[in-house]
C-alpha cells in the first residue's frame, strides 16, 4: 500500500514514516505542503494520505478540497493539532475519512489507519 505523508514539519514526517514502516507500509512518499502534494500525487498514486492542517503555501484543508474536486477517492486522514469540533466537521465535510489530533501515540495512529482502510475495503 502506498501512503503519502503531507506535513511541513520534517520531524512529523519522519515520525509518521517510522510508524508506517512499523505497520508494514514501506512505500511512503512525503510532501511538505498541499501544493507540493498536488504535484506529487499523480505520479505516486497513493492509497492513503496523512494530511496536516496548518502548512505554508497550501494548507491541508485546501489541499483536501482540491484533491477531492479532482475526483480522487483515496482515503485521507487529517493529522493535526486542530481539535475543535467545528474544525473536525469542516474536515469531514471536505472529504476527510478520519481524524487524528496531535499529540498522538504510534498505537493510535496505527489504529486509525487500520480502521480507515478496513472501512474502505468493506464499503460496497
Amino acid at each position: 500500500m502506498r501512503v503519502m505523508v503531507i506535513d511541513d514539519s520534517k520531524t512529523m514526517r519522519n515520525i509518521e514514516r517510522s510508524i508506517l514502516n512499523q505497520l508494514g507500509y514501506t512505500e511512503v512518499e512525503e510532501a511538505c505542503n498541499g501544493q507540493d502534494a498536488l504535484t506529487k500525487v499523480a505520479a505516486f498514486n497513493p492509497d492513503l494520505l496523512l494530511v496536516d492542517w496548518n502548512m505554508p503555501n497550501m494548507d491541508g484543508i485546501t489541499f483536501v478540497k482540491a484533491y477531492r474536486e479532482q475526483g480522487h477517492k483515496t482515503a485521507i486522514i487529517m493529522v493535526t493539532t486542530e481539535n475543535e469540533k467545528t474544525r473536525v466537521i469542516e474536515a469531514i465535510k471536505a472529504g476527510v475519512n478520519n481524524y487524528v489530533v496531535k499529540p498522538f501515540t504510534p498505537e493510535l495512529l496505527g489504529e486509525r489507519i487500520n480502521d480507515t482502510m478496513a472501512k474502505l475495503e468493506s464499503a460496497p
Binding site: S9, S18, N54, K102, F104, T105, P106
Partner: peptide, 17 residues
Amino acid sequence: GEQQQERLTALNSEISD
C-alpha cells in the same frame, strides 16, 4: 502551541520505540 504538540507526538513515538 503546535510545536509543543508535535514535540509531544515525537516523545510518544520515542517512548514507544
